[in-house]
């Protein structure tokens, strides 16, 4: 049996310098371009055969669902019979932004506020905590403690915080002990979204702290020594040395937290189910309801593409901001 992976000895020189040069331009990986056309074809076939499981995986789980989602976003479909898919053009997108529709306000605005609030709190909190941990003994223990919410299921986290927020719960107990009245955190539309944002930020603090701790450890000690010799105070060191050199880690945390925030679903489902009213309703929850509860797969798919565009724009904006400050993604 002839192994098709063994490089053929026939090089470009044998086929003439002109052709060799052409092939080198066309295929930068010179080894793969070697050999007569039949051999190359055979290699290409074998290469695709090796790639086929992965390509098949992507086709089944990425390309087809994506194509189906595009089709649905331009159709009306109740979700039951495939023969009932009825093309409606851009009607679904128009319906999402029609007067009186709740998708833009409050659903999409809630989504952005939720993501923004989560990123702000998680980023600020994780920088603070990571910096403090750097000065403590038993750093591993502290990092583990802060990482615990990550390994806890969202359902458990949501339910525990839900009870803590209730009128007779821990948070109100603390407020009462301090002489303040009770607050209906999750039942009041004004406080419901911020309350859930706090939980999401708390739950995502651990992973951010891990990344930032790694970032802090990569900053050379010599910079701090030099700053100390120059008489720089702690605040100056933090603003002029720590924060600028943490920028790659901050970029990573910022982008990933924003993506998570924009797609948040489970925590809100557990804690408020989007209520009261639409006070905590976000895009992912709205999409799920439209598709699986209301049988309106068309607008659900259209909403998914709108959210995709929002996520893309937000991510590009973050990359642009960080690049302007000299940081590569």
């Amino acid at each position: 049996m002839v192994s098709t992976l063994v490089p053929e000895r026939a090089g470009p020189e044998r086929a003439g310098p002109e052709r060799a040069g052409r092939e080198r331009r066309a295929r930068p990986v010179s080894g793969a371009a070697d050999g007569p056309p039949r051999t190359r074809r055979r290699r290409t076939v074998v290469a695709y055969l090796f790639l086929s499981p992965v390509l098949l995986f992507f086709a089944v789980f990425l390309v087809l669902p994506l194509g189906f989602a595009v089709l649905l976003s331009l159709s009306h479909w109740s979700g039951f019979a495939l023969s009932g898919i009825e093309p409606v053009g851009l009607d679904n997108f128009a319906a999402l932004f029609a007067a009186g529709s709740t998708f833009l306000v409050p659903v999409l605005t809630n989504t952005l506020l939720f993501a923004l609030g989560t990123v702000a709190l998680a980023l600020g909190g994780s920088v603070l905590v990571a910096s403090c941990i750097e000065r403590l003994r038993f750093q591993g223990l502290w990092r583990t403690l802060y990482f615990l919410p990550i390994v806890t299921t969202v359902v458990a986290v949501g339910n525990v915080w839900k009870y803590m927020y209730e009128p007779g719960g821990l948070v109100n107990g603390v407020l009462n002990a301090a002489g303040a009245g009770s607050v209906a955190f999750l039942a009041d539309p004004d406080t419901a979204l911020p309350s859930v944002v706090v939980v999401q930020a708390w739950a995502s603090l651990g992973s951010a702290i891990l990344v930032l701790t790694a970032g802090l450890k990569s900053i050379p000690e010599s910079y701090y020594e030099a700053a100390s010799l120059d008489g720089a105070g702690q605040a100056t060191v933090f603003w002029r040395i720590t924060l600028p050199l943490l920028r790659p880690s901050l970029l990573f945390v910022c982008v990933t937290q924003f993506l998570t925030g924009l797609q948040s679903f489970a925590l809100i489902t557990v804690m408020t189910k989007g209520g009261p009213g639409d006070a905590t309703n976000v895009a992912a929850l709205e999409m799920y309801r439209r598709a699986f509860s209301y049988g309106d797969w068309g607008t659900a798919s259209a909403a998914a593409f709108v959210l995709f565009v929002v996520v893309l724009l937000v991510t590009l904006a973050q990359l642009w901001v960080f690049r302007r400050k000299g940081e590569e993604a």
Partner: peptide, 12 residues
């Protein structure tokens, strides 16, 4: 099969 069920398409 997938296509045997009747759907809501009509009037187009």
């Amino acid at each position: 099969g997938a296509g045997t069920a009747t759907g809501g398409a009509g009037g187009t």
